[in-house]
Design a protein around this nucleic acid. Structure first.
Length: 513
RNA sequence: GGCCCGUUCGUCUAGCGGUUCAGGACAUCUCCCUUUCACGGAGAAGAUCACGGGUUCAAAUCCCGUACGGGUCACCA
């Protein structure tokens, strides 16, 4: 497989929104392919018709598009829900007719067999086994001899049942005692004895393949060279290796990614963690049609795709240098599957925010100004011009992790303070405060109301009166902004303009005395 | 429980037999800057490299065992 064109795939099941772990798997696949000049495909594995969730497929496509992880082939090319490429269709439910022949091939070669046991019978056997002290009964090389299948039933009865249309599944016939080995790109040699593997169902009663069959068949047909997926697939990898062998196909290279762990306690990060832990687990908002609840997404939380992707890339991978801030293109350049960590990575939202902050600062002033304008319009229904936005950003960007921080840090830029910080009023507002402000108003009015001029006039006033900055500065802040925190109050005053500032000062004096 | 995988500062990690009594980042703390809050700068603290045995002149790095953690055991993916 060394000189084959690199082709990888991300193959999610549309049973709900894609969570961040899934996005990271897609990202690593994408980075790997692009780094090597190969193809990245998106295939939809919807063989379980009972778990179909409306909108999930659209969500997956939208989420990847937002992240900039664009498929070259399959579903979702150019963000469209449509098949695109020489191996169409790329949705397994649409490929249903094609799997049967492969199951038959295994049947003919003696690597698979028909099994007529009903789900109820299997359930009963498991129950019996459990009460006998064996908690997990398996359909395997030993137990299959006492089940109803084409290995135990007389040939004519099997033919009769098949003719009669009896329900059946096709199971893999697991070899009795064989060591299955494969070299995982991340974990090295992994070895399992078939004694511990069971006769997995390959083709279900409804004619649909299970993941195992569909995955192996499609990866082969679609000429996938590297299977990069989550560690939860490691236990079934030996089965897949065996299937490639049974079919006589070249086996792709495997790379099983470490899991994303919950920041608290134990276990892997799951969809059900939702917002319970105080951060989104999904790339985009997801409105659950059944519960009516909306799970929050990174996009809506204010993250830039660049920050989100950068953060995800570093959960389990590291370039080996001290550089941490990367664009998608830089990630492609730096990525190496061999540098992926083996152990699970515990997610830390604080660091995630830091990544976004770094990307926030890398954006151009023009783009930021436009985003700020949009944010202000959405939050306060106020329209501000580009100059205002640019000036506001020089004041507020430093203290922001998200552009929304800059927007929400100063509602007082868009409305007079509704109230004044009572603690600071108590500390700083004295019987003399109103007088100081009244003295300042004409001094400022005589200036051009620019930040430096306002500050200069203020300082001159202090010098003249012998007052300290701490005695009057906070008072000005309270009057103009209602709070004593924030950037230079003179910058804020410049933004607000003279008449607004004077009105606010009057209002404060009227309110606070 | 069986099988498989993993284990370096609180967290993400660098490290691939000697140049490391372990480097960076987030978080924490201190100081400077700023008469606010942040940003920024400087610094501190924080890991006997899970533990125990080996191998070797030399081990975080190789091997074995133990412990702990995780994953997986469906006609789900």
């Amino acid at each position: 497989m060394s000189d084959r064109r690199v082709r990888v795939r991300f193959a999610p099941s549309p049973t709900g929104p894609l969570h961040m772990g899934g996005v990271r798997t897609a990202l690593y696949n994408y980075l790997f392919a692009k780094k090597l000049g190969g193809d990245f495909l998106l295939r939809i594995e919807d063989t379980d018709q009972t778990r179909f969730v409306p909108g999930a497929e659209q969500y997956i496509v939208d989420a990847l598009a937002w992240c900039g992880i664009s498929p070259d082939e399959g579903i979702g090319v150019n963000g469209q829900i449509a098949d695109h490429g020489p191996h169409a269709p790329y949705r397994q439910s649409d490929r249903k007719p094609l799997y049967r022949a492969f199951a038959d091939q295994l049947l003919a070669a003696g690597h698979a067999y028909y099994a007529f046991d009903t789900p109820e019978e299997l359930e009963a056997v498991r129950e019996r086994s459990k009460s006998a002290g064996n908690p997990n009964w398996q359909y395997n090389s030993i137990t299959r001899t006492s089940m109803k299948n084409s290995l135990t039933l007389p040939e004519d009865e099997v033919a009769r049942r098949l003719d009669a249309g009896d329900a059946y599944v096709i199971r893999v016939k697991m070899p009795r005692n064989e060591e299955v080995k494969f070299e995982d790109r991340i974990r090295g040699w992994v070895s399992v004895n078939t004694l511990n593997l069971d006769d997995k169902v390959l083709l279900k009663g409804d004619g649909m393949p299970t993941y195992h069959l569909a995955n192996v068949v499609d990866d082969h047909l679609m000429e996938i060279t590297h299977v990069i997926r989550g560690e939860e697939w490691l236990p079934s990898a030996p089965l897949h290796v065996l299937l490639y062998r049974f079919f006589g196909w070249e086996q792709p290279e495997f790379a099983h990614l470490p899991l994303l762990l919950r920041p608290d306690g134990n276990g892997k990060l799951s969809k059900r963690d939702g917002d319970r832990l105080g951060f989104p687990v999904f790339p985009l908002n997801w409105a659950n049609a059944e519960t009516g609840e909306t799970a929050s997404g990174y996009r809506e939380r204010g993250f830039y795709p660049e920050g989100f992707v950068n953060m995800l890339a570093f959960l389990g991978w590291n370039p080996g240098t001290n550089q941490e801030i990367f664009s998608l293109d830089e990630l492609i350049e730096a990525f190496s599957i061999d540098k992926v960590h083996k152990a699970g990575a515990r997610f830390d939202f604080e660091k995630a925010k830091w990544f976004n902050q770094q990307h926030l600062r890398q954006r151009s002033p023009e783009v930021l100004a436009a985003e700020y304008q949009a944010g202000v319009a959405a939050a306060f229904g106020a329209a501000v011009d580009t100059d205002f936005a640019a000036k506001a950003l020089t004041l507020f960007l430093d203290r922001s992790e998200f552009i929304s921080d800059a927007v929400h840090a100063a509602p007082y830029l868009f409305a007079k303070p509704a109230e004044y910080d009572s603690v600071m009023v108590g500390k700083k507002w004295t019987s003399e405060s109103a007088g100081h402000l009244r003295s300042l108003v004409p001094l400022w009015a005589a200036s051009n109301y620019s930040e430096p001029a306002l500050e200069e006039a203020f300082k001159a006033f202090l010098t003249e009166t012998g007052l300290g900055f701490g005695a009057v500065g906070p008072v000005v802040r309270l009057a103009v902004a209602g709070t004593t925190q924030g950037p230079s109050i003179f910058g804020v005053m410049e933004l607000l303009g003279r008449s607004e500032c004077e009105a606010r000062i009057e209002k404060a004096i009227a309110t606070l005395g």
